[in-house]
Design a protein around this nucleic acid. Structure first.
Lengths: 188, 188
DNA sequence: GTGTACATGTAAAGTGTTACATGATTTC
DNA sequence: GAAATCATGTAACACTTTACATGTACAC
């Protein structure tokens, strides 16, 4: 989903500024399955304006740039509906963590253990954040999405907690040897 | 993780051609947490050659382009180790499916139901594929990674099966009204 | 005083995907 | 005879991130 459609979607939930859109993507219900930087949001809103898919009211603030509140137009809502009619692309999950684990023969075993420990904490934090969101007012749709996030995060957490030993016991030995070779090239 | 590092990592598990790397990313243990197209893999291997991080043996085949089998050099393995020493970036999950659900006020309720049904089947297929991988020979690391994938896919599947009613019961009514508005702008 | 939050925006640089080009062999 | 598999590679295009530019206000 490109940033323009994402903005259209977020605006369909309520008027917002570019700054607020960024916050929703970074910390709100969308935070665990989408991303966007200012450098993509502001130009996207500009193009959406040109196409008359959104309108914008500038709120003058002194000592600060005008706050521009964007709203979806009727045409914008229709465009969004059209976009959402297309079958969604399959999910794209990129995980450097899992890649590192997979290539762990090139990584010190203590490092693998530490990585998993860190990851466990990150999952716990993420779950806490998502559960915090549930405390606020939510539409059924955003509740569904956040609870989906919690469910998958919890599954990942549980997996790491119960399987972390699987790597250290067996692969790590081989890794330790490999590492010795790489770590002391002078010995060759 | 950029494609060059990904190639280095895959080659650390064994020699491979560009074509085979693509297959591993598309169908192997890496398939649920990374992606790469030929248009990125071949140029990456070329750069890796220039930097002497990999070597390449061309196997002549008639009626076909030479099959180029790439191998990691010592320098390449060191470079990989260096890359993996950096803390992995947080996972990036992009889901058009969840975005569509979140913006479902702009989507017909039957469409939401159908979307979830499709997604359930996709998860079941994905789980079957991953379980198929477990049948073959695997290192502990790739087993770990594939089982992680199965665990999270199953959690998502179960969530969809048990919560699909949550959206249709409540949000859908509102959506139906909203949609009527959008669907019949002439009425305004 | 140092850092964070507020607030918008541009330009350069990087990275990657899509489509194209080429062509035999095997399976349905 | 159509489609998939094998096999490599380039070029145009799309999209995004990063860094920069600008500045106030408040909390610690």
């Amino acid at each position: 989903m490109d940033i323009k459609t994402l903005c259209l979607g977020i605006l369909s939930l309520g008027d917002a500024t570019g700054y607020e859109i960024k916050k929703m993507v970074a910390e709100g219900s969308l935070s665990f399955f989408s991303e966007a930087s200012y450098g993509s949001i502001y130009p996207a809103l500009g193009k959406l304006m040109e196409q008359n898919l959104v309108t914008c009211v500038a709120m003058v603030q002194d000592k600060r740039p005008d706050k521009k509140v964007y709203s979806l137009t009727e045409t914008g809502r229709e465009e969004l509906t059209r976009s959402l009619r297309k079958d969604p692309d399959p999910d794209k999950n990129r995980s450097e963590f899992l890649a590192t684990i997979l290539f762990c023969e090139s990584v010190a075993p203590e490092r693998v253990t530490a990585l998993i420990q860190d990851r466990i904490i990150e999952h716990e934090d993420k779950i806490a954040t998502l559960e915090g969101l549930l405390a606020g007012e939510m539409t059924p749709a955003s509740r569904f999405v956040v609870e989906y996030g919690i469910a998958t995060q919890k599954a990942a957490l549980k997996f790491l907690q119960t399987h972390q030993g699987n790597l250290v016991g067996t692969a790590a030995k081989g890794a330790a040897n490999k590492l010795k070779e790489v770590g002391t090239p002078a010995a060759e």
